[in-house]
């Protein structure tokens, strides 16, 4: 279970996001998309608030959250790492990059490092196949990544 506590300001954020979609139940996916953008993830309390404003059951919200792999109920690190596992990146060694990151950060794919600094995810094609294998940390894109460079790259993040 998450330990997230909903503050008044969080509630306002959710309220505003829902209102921007006219509290329309059909906009659930868009609302969740924006909400996850604001909080980084979708803990229970946040889903309950969304359900309240859209006037749908929490079970429905949870159903959508668990159906789409984009949505997550675990918090991300301060610097979320995504490694592209699309075909081009894969054949050029993306798996080795992921293995090295798992060893370095001592986490699995989908996990967060104990200090909360990094989280690790895989994604499909970011559209930069010419730079394969590609890794993103936050919004920054790293191309032609090799496992041996990772230590230095990670050290740049405070």
């Amino acid at each position: 279970m998450s330990t997230f506590t909903l503050q008044e300001c969080h509630k306002n954020t959710i309220k505003e996001i829902c209102a921007s979609f006219h509290n329309e139940p059909g906009e659930l996916i868009n609302v969740l998309h924006k909400t996850q953008g604001a909080f980084g993830y979708l803990p229970e309390e946040v889903q309950r608030e969304v359900a309240k404003y859209l006037n749908i059951s929490v079970a429905k919200v949870y159903g959508v959250v668990t159906f789409y792999s984009f949505f997550t109920m675990t918090p991300k690190g301060r610097y979320p790492i995504s490694v592209c596992m699309g075909t081009a990146c894969y054949v050029r060694g993306a798996e080795k990059v992921v293995d090295a990151l798992m060893r370095e950060l001592e986490i699995k794919v989908g996990g967060v490092s104990t200090d909360g600094k990094f989280s690790l995810d895989c994604l499909r094609c970011v559209g930069a196949c010419g730079l394969a294998p590609v890794m993103q940390i936050g919004d920054k894109v790293y191309g032609r990544v090799e496992a041996s460079q990772l230590k230095d790259i990670l050290a740049q993040y405070e």
Binding site: Q47, I56, S57, V58, A59, K60, Y62, T66, F67
Partner: peptide, 25 residues
């Protein structure tokens, strides 16, 4: 549960072989 009774206790969750109908969380 949802359309007739408006109770909203159950919803389909997860996907593929892991999909079931369950309460929230």
């Amino acid at each position: 549960c949802n359309d007739v009774q408006s109770v909203g206790a159950l919803s389909a969750i997860n996907r593929g072989f892991h999909s079931v109908v369950a309460p929230a969380f």
